[in-house]
Design a protein around this nucleic acid. Structure first.
Lengths: 254, 254
DNA sequence: ATCTATTTGTACGTATGTATT
DNA sequence: AAATACATACGTACAAATAGA
């Protein structure tokens, strides 16, 4: 269980809690543990690793911070393997971009390439429920906003349209990346005033593109879905032109 | 500094260390601390939060696990704000996909959309050094492999070509996503035997596409760079056809 | 090279909180 | 309601690492 590599007296790359955390991770994989499975309790881990409670607890906090375990108190409690939630993954990745000065243009470069791909892959696969959900979402901004607050809410809602689509993708990588970008843009919309100045023409076009997209998705027309989404992204991208706002000057908490 | 929201006696959503960690994060943002800046020491934090040493330390481990701080012992030591490294971010995101049964096809759906975008955006912007590095990389697999080990090494090296390109992108989001996918594929190549059966034709084509790509990049021909990369991805994608291997049955340690 | 001060790292005993039975 | 089984938190003592005198 201990690392086979012999190390000289004090060659500490990692702190002890970190090493314990790594070993537990490895052990979980070796045992083939699945989400919901219980890990050994604190006392047993203390014995196994011959370390004090504090050290073990710090290791568990590390795993918990990474979203890999959840801990419950009480009888039958303890630490349990947990599937990393999408929210946690988005938060952790968001921390990386906190330091990166992402621009809106950067995000749209990817959206323009990926959203049409998503639209095409979803054409003809969506349930009536989801199609209805998409239409209900569009209905939230069928009428132009009257106040600035409403404008902001509509902006966020129209982004949510894409999150709903992303959720439906079979491809979990594509799904995640698009969802993550929607989050970035939503944060940006709320924290900066990305929704001003109000542009009615682009609002109307966006709404119409989304409506046409739902039709194409329902009809199962992959080509049309891709084309409409491409046009939609081009239009949205144009809205942002000149917006070289720095973003993400905060951490996300999940 | 303590949360303004009054909560009923025992309404604990988060453990105390987690709450401390969140507050410290928020504080770092408010203070506008930058990588390298020092955080208060353990004793001061114990006083500030009126909590025991162990609790504070668990909070610090959480921040460390997220890659946001580094801690050193000794005089002048302490915890320091740290820019989340790309390696850490990739590892944390990798944990998310551990549970997701990603397929090679999933990854290539994104690569096919994004790699040409990257190629186009890099055309004419690369230094002689980078162009030379790319050519040196290609040289590693200019001759067909003789052993299976060599074949594997060449496979990984040819993926590295794309990591070098990704590193040059101005768009840090595009850069990260492509780099991350290259990592996924490298892991897959090593842990599954993705390099068999050996296919000389596709090896030769891949090598030639990369060579032509370097020429287009050097010439600054965005259109050609995009087209060559698209063809390259289509070919590589074809190599994987029928490969519906489950992947990522392990955690990544950074 | 040695000592010393500073700061994190580890250990352990005790008490409290929490949820199941 | 009470006993039980577990994590959570505290306080103190001591060990280890590192920079500087």
């Amino acid at each position: 269980m201990l690392p086979a590599t012999t190390r000289s007296k004090t060659e500490h790359r990692l702190s002890r809690p970190s090493r314990v955390a790594e070993e537990i991770k490895q052990w979980v994989v070796e045992q083939g543990l699945l989400p919901g499975d219980r890990l050994p309790g604190e006392t047993e881990l203390m014995a196994r690793f011959a370390m004090a409670k504090g050290t073990i607890r710090e290791a568990m906090r590390i795993l918990e911070a990474q979203g890999l375990i959840k801990t419950r108190t009480g009888p039958g409690g303890g630490s349990f393997v947990h599937e990393v939630s999408r929210g946690r993954a988005k938060a952790l990745l968001g921390n990386y971009f906190y330091f990166k000065d992402l621009t809106v243009g950067d995000i749209y470069q990817l959206r323009r390439a990926l959203e049409p791909e998503l639209a095409a892959s979803l054409a003809g696969t969506l349930s009536q429920e989801v199609l209805a959900e998409l239409e209900a979402n569009i209905a939230q901004y069928s009428e132009p906003a009257t106040t600035l607050d409403e404008e902001r809410a509509q902006h966020v809602a129209s982004l949510r349209f894409h999150a709903i689509l992303a959720e439906q993708a079979d491809n979990s990588l594509l799904s995640f990346v698009i969802d993550f970008m929607v989050n970035l843009l939503s944060d940006l919309t709320v924290h900066r005033k990305l929704y001003e100045p109000i542009n009615r023409e682009l609002w109307a076009k966006g709404r119409d593109y989304q409506a046409r997209l739902v039709m194409a998705l329902r009809a199962g027309d992959k080509g049309a879905a891709r084309a409409v989404m491409t046009a939609h992204m081009d239009t949205a991208s144009r809205l942002m032109r000149g917006q070289e706002v720095e973003m993400m000057k905060r951490f996300i908490d999940e």
